[in-house]
Design a protein around this nucleic acid. Structure first.
Length: 487
DNA sequence: TCGCCTAGCACATTTGAATTGT
DNA sequence: AACAATTCAAATGTGCTAGGCG
């Protein structure tokens, strides 16, 4: 569970957000209560919002080996998928839950026989693309009722893909980041939607187009139900049966048995755990058919490359991993800036430390070798991890008309022509490209200078909105670019 | 030659429509 | 006729692997 180091101070200036008028709504009964607040941001950041990653044991097993996530042109789901439990939200206020991937560090990696090595500097970070949970927006009560599953999030290396996929660079390390965005109150339309950010260092992974570490492959096969066809040492694989070469089967079996020897002990229990979690994941409605919302500057804050988390983003949690909650307080920003100036070696308590180098390896090779380490027990906070009830398995037949209506959480959706918010955001992000199609270099990343609990002030959001318009004007000649208001 | 990427494959699961039973 | 349970095919999600590309 991720806890804020300190409660944020509500001293933020009131920020106009003129496009936030018609996004989401507040139920009538909560208007009175919360209209007293000057800022929706104050409302959200004052809440004791806690987030915990589910399937921690599985994540830790992957992390201890060095998690790899396959990325393909058409998009590949993550396994393990990100599933989080959230507590502390206002049950009646609507929130949008978003996940994206931010660079873990400045490095590009290569697989060398049996370990990952740094292989130069990272490529320029791609314009951030977000996966908006299909149930968004929904009241806090709904988000807290069941674990929030992002199993439909897909990763790709295809920068031209605009189908709501998260675009990553191969051989780069990323970490998931969760955004909880509060819908602006239409009664006080000047309020922007406040947001909180949570990163998950134990879920960091290296994006690959083909698995490099056979142990990762085995872990995936043994835990992912879709890969059951590759279990049993591959003996049930038709490819090998058809070839009819016992020799090949033996070879395959030998390789897998070698891998299993040290792992089979704890594997069976893990398989059970994961099977349960996967089959009980939240029933996410198809993004294409889910609620559609109008583009809103407070959402556009997340299209800001500068807020996408830069190369040093991981240090935010690595250095102060007791809390990876990000606020938006200039006061904490100052505190974190101080922390940022400290040497990594003095502060690193991270789950996966890249500062721990093998001296011998480093000596022989100028490129430091990565030693992935399991999280420190003191940082795992298993005792604090909440176990929420699993959602019921719903089917179309079981759902009553009223229940179906209740699932449609966006009263302002354009039912006739819904447009996935993910697409809207991703298209907006795409506009951040230069006319030549080249990616813009990463502007200063607010998170780079913030450590641990932090709040980001809204002027930064507004600044990007202005910047975005500037970029739009630069790309006006591109025929496929449509005005922002069209979305 | 090497490392990375891609498309196609086989296998398993999921989903939803059609069918059957009560 | 209405509802529930079952069946089945299509869609989708997996890792594997040969071959292409720079």
């Amino acid at each position: 569970m991720y806890l804020p180091e300190e409660r944020p101070v509500l001293d933020l200036p009131y920020q106009m957000n003129h496009l936030a008028n018609n996004y989401g709504y507040y139920p009538q009964d909560c208007r009175t209560q919360y209209s007293r607040m000057n800022s929706a941001e104050a409302e959200l950041t004052s809440l004791p919002v806690h987030v915990s990653l589910q399937d921690r044991e599985l994540w830790d097993k992957f992390s201890s080996i060095g998690t790899e996530m396959l990325i393909t042109k058409s998009g590949r789901r993550m396994f393990p998928s990100c599933k989080v439990t959230v507590t502390g939200l206002n049950p009646k206020v609507k929130y949008v839950v978003i996940m994206d991937m931010v660079p873990f560090d400045n490095h590009k990696y290569k697989w060398n026989k049996d370990c990952w090595e740094v292989n130069g500097s990272s490529d320029p970070h791609l314009p951030n693309r977000f996966f908006i949970h299909p149930d968004s927006p929904a009241p806090g009560q709904k988000w807290m009722q069941y674990p929030i599953s992002f199993h439909k999030l897909k990763l790709t290396n295809n920068t031209l893909n605009s189908n709501g996929l998260v675009v990553l660079h191969s051989m780069h390390k990323y970490q998931p980041r969760l955004h909880i965005v509060q819908s602006p109150d239409p009664c006080t339309p000047h309020n922007p939607g406040a947001y909180l950010r949570f990163t998950f260092p134990e879920a960091a992974f290296i994006a690959v187009t083909a698995y490099q570490n056979q142990e990762i492959t085995k872990l995936k096969i043994d835990n992912n139900p879709f890969a059951k066809g590759f279990r049993d040492n591959g003996l049930n694989r038709k490819r090998f049966r058809d070839k009819g070469t016992q020799e090949m089967q033996d070879t395959d079996r030998q390789v897998k048995l070698d891998l299993t020897a040290n792992e089979c002990a704890g594997m069976s229990q893990m398989v059970e755990d994961v099977d349960v979690s996967v089959s009980s994941s939240v029933d996410c409605r198809d993004t294409q058919n889910s609620s559609s919302v109008s583009l809103n500057p407070f959402i556009s804050a997340f299209t800001n490359p500068s807020s996408a988390g830069g190369a040093a983003a991981h240090q935010t949690h690595t250095l102060l991993s007791l809390s990876n909650r990000h606020f938006s307080s200039p006061r904490e920003s100052n505190l974190n800036s101080v922390c940022a100036a400290l040497p990594v070696s003095q502060l690193s308590t991270g789950h996966t430390s890249f500062s721990r180098l093998n001296p011998q390896e480093t000596h022989h090779n100028s490129r430091p070798k990565i030693q992935l380490q399991p999280p420190h027990p003191s940082l795992q906070c298993h005792d604090l991890e909440l176990r929420l009830p699993l959602p019921p398995k719903l089917s179309r037949v079981q759902l009553s008309e009223s229940a179906l209506r209740n699932l449609e959480m966006s009263p302002l959706s354009d039912c006739a022509n819904p447009r996935p918010l993910t697409n809207i955001l991703n298209r907006s992000c795409f506009r951040a490209s230069t006319p030549s199609g080249k990616l813009l270099p990463n502007p200063p990343q607010p998170e780079q200078f913030l450590r641990g609990s932090e709040r980001e002030i809204y002027p930064a959001v507004q600044e990007y909105t202005d910047q975005q318009f500037t970029l739009n004007s630069q790309t006006e000649h591109r025929p496929h670019m449509r005005p922002l208001t069209e979305y």
